[in-house]
Design a protein around this nucleic acid. Structure first.
Lengths: 409, 409
DNA sequence: AGTATTTACGAACGCTCGCTATCTATACTG
DNA sequence: CAGTATAGATAGCGAGCGTTCGTAAATACT
């Protein structure tokens, strides 16, 4: 009755499909402007159809028209070229950690407009909320984007995130963090759809996007804590919400998990804290070693890897042990998932080839198809980048009327 | 040039979308006939549109018209009802094992038309091809389906299957099996698209379909060998082609994998052969036990579980040990995948609650989100059922012009 | 038994949309 | 300055969907 239900199948829906098709083609060529003729070729539609769609998209502010001023130097009448107007719907990504808050603002086209990072010595939950507000304001100012223009925002938090309620369940270092409704807080600042997800998941999304293509990616974030994100053909795998919690993999033959613990067995075995502790112990046991020279009680995780890279046998033994524990813990999942690539990010990834090679050697003994093992190229920005990307996807999904049929089942 | 490229966006495509939408709605209500009014409601399209689509589908042989003869007892003019004409495109599923060949023929609607199973005492590769031909012929005759009518066929084979070349890579008990081009052989018999996949994958597909809904399913096939299939939101996860090979998960702290071995470490630890061997050893060590009474040297896997169900402490200890090894091997993958449910099928699944409870207890100690642990309801038919289902999906995907846009990137 | 009511099928009309074909505009070349 | 090649704008045609109306076939009521 009254109005027609959305999603039917009239001719108006056909037009929406075609407009969406044109916009999608423009989007795919990212920041490069496109000529109408190229759009005709890529979409397979007729020129008048494309022209009409482009007009409509220009009016709606989705596209911007470029003058033919470039060095196009071709015969004939110069083509008008269009590219998508990124400022039409900027998005915001937010990475909240116990010691660091990072905010990134991005274009609709994926261009990074600003990135603001602030570190501190461990905030309380309340202080953190304040810092988040400040950093968001700062990032928006730097990007010259008014707060009300932001089309979507995604926040990354450690811990297990309930996708629907937006609450964080299993929280590490910030006391009182699980009681905070971060989504509500950010929505108060921005007035746009706000989503929350696990930091490892978002990092995985960013890394998968950077690598491009299809396949299965297992992206490990390795710092004091260990987490992983799984991306299958561009889509994040969440399981029932807690997928990728590799930190809680049992290592010893009698290990048992306690969900109340802030750290899982694997984190206690090979987290950066544990690596440093192993290094300090090794330095005590071998005072003559290169490792001990680097600094006895103050020994850092980085020192261990530095000494190993320097061919110190004592440090190498520590790295071997860490690599072995890590590989043994991860091998079953690699057999089951059979990923195209395993990418390691986070603080420990700075160890570089020393660690990577050791892990690779171990994994070769424990898996059938040996996935590519790589270090994350995105370094610290992986999580924010992933958050921005998810926000972007959200905007595209919401704005583009996808030609998917309604399933009323 | 010349003809328009397929996948453009004309109004004729709109009609195809709507016809597909109608057909899909009919399909969803499976074997139950639908009235046109119901189709109008479900698709959201106008009645004339639906009527036209139904006419077209009737002409093309996709639908069949039911008389209003049923006990419909309602007011007004009786509605004509349509259901999909399964015989329009029957599919065939084939499960090839070293000792058993099973062929099922199914309706387009998913109704099982015939199921023929033949067991033998270990065939050679060449003999197996002959048996396959015979059983296919028999199953088609029983279903009263001419060979040339079969619209798609899917074969299940143990081992790792290369999706594209259709070759089997890691083969167990049948000598010379990897040299056989099973796809080519079946295509010679049927003249239709033929696909080949891993048996555990197909069983997982069937179980996921039987459970219905979305979510992540880890379906373990547990017999002499161990394999698993992963289904995420109805789609099979293949990884690079060898996903789910849980048989090769290392169990001991110093285990190492050799891809040349016919059995992996977990198979050697908890495969049905291993369980029987553990039972025989326990019977020797405890001659007074209930287990030993059941049969000394002839002790079977089933005997172990029977004795355990009979509360024999010796047998229970064996089951405990098996459950512990299995749970420890699988726990990391459950943490990473975080599946909605873990379903156990295959011969060992006949053990029932004794084993399931023991595994469940162990898993509770090793995982965060505890997935539902169930036994496969499909028993032996899981693999064929899954093969038929995949063939069905193939037909639907091929026949239905999906409204997905072409991505010419 | 005849009539009223209910339900669903069938046909005609008007609308929107996309495709083909044609015409116009622009800039470079000889 | 004319010619040509490329690209944008416009008109006519066909196809499909949705709305509205009329009609057929059952059941319920008098």
């Amino acid at each position: 009755m009254s109005k027609g239900t959305v999603g039917g199948g009239g001719t108006t829906m056909l037009r929406r499909i075609n407009v969406a098709s044109v916009l999608d083609a423009v989007r795919r060529s990212a920041p490069a402007p496109l000529r109408v003729a190229e759009l005709v070729e890529r979409t397979g539609l007729a020129r008048p159809t494309v022209a009409q769609a482009v007009d409509e998209l220009l009016d709606a502010g989705w596209l911007q028209q470029h003058g033919p001023d470039s060095a196009d130097r071709s015969l004939g009448r110069p083509a008008i070229r269009v590219s998508l107007r990124g400022r039409a719907a900027p998005v915001l990504g937010l990475d909240v950690g116990p010691h660091r808050v990072t905010v990134g603002v991005s274009d609709l086209a994926g261009r990074k407009l600003s990135l603001v990072r602030r570190s501190g010595p461990g905030w309380t939950a309340q202080e953190l909320l304040g810092v988040i507000g400040e950093v968001i304001t700062e990032a928006l100012a730097e990007a010259e984007v008014p707060a009300e223009d932001v089309a979507a925002a995604v926040a990354a938090s450690p811990g297990i995130v309930d996708e629907h309620t937006g609450r964080v369940q299993l929280v590490p270092s910030v006391p009182g963090w699980s009681a905070i409704d971060l989504i509500k807080h950010v929505r108060g600042l921005l007035d746009c759809p706000v989503m929350l997800d696990n930091d490892a998941n978002l990092a995985a999304l960013a890394i998968a996007a950077a690598r491009g293509g299809t396949g299965t990616l297992l992206a490990v974030q390795w710092g004091e804590r260990l987490g992983a994100g799984i991306v299958i053909d561009g889509r994040l795998h969440r399981g029932t919400g807690a997928a990728g919690e590799i930190g809680f993999i049992a290592t010893g033959p009698d290990d048992v998990i306690n969900p109340e613990d802030s750290r899982g067995p694997l984190e206690r075995a090979v987290g950066s804290e544990a690596i440093a502790a192993l290094g300090r112990q090794a330095a005590l046991d071998h005072p003559e070693s290169r490792l001990a020279e680097l600094g006895g009680d103050q020994l850092d995780t980085a020192d261990v890897f530095a000494a190993a890279a320097d061919r110190d046998p004592v440090a190498q033994a520590v790295v071997q042990q860490v690599a072995r524990s890590f590989a043994r813990a991860l091998a079953p999942s690699i057999l089951v998932l059979d990923p195209t690539a395993v990418v390691i990010g986070g603080g420990v990834a700075r160890a570089g080839a020393v660690l990577l090679d050791a892990i690779s050697d171990q994994l070769r003994l424990l898996t059938l198809n040996h996935p590519k093992l790589e270090l994350s190229a995105l370094a610290e920005d992986a999580v924010v980048t992933g958050a921005m990307r998810m926000a972007l996807d959200e905007v595209w999904q919401r704005k583009l009327p996808t030609p998917a049929m309604t399933s009323t089942t």
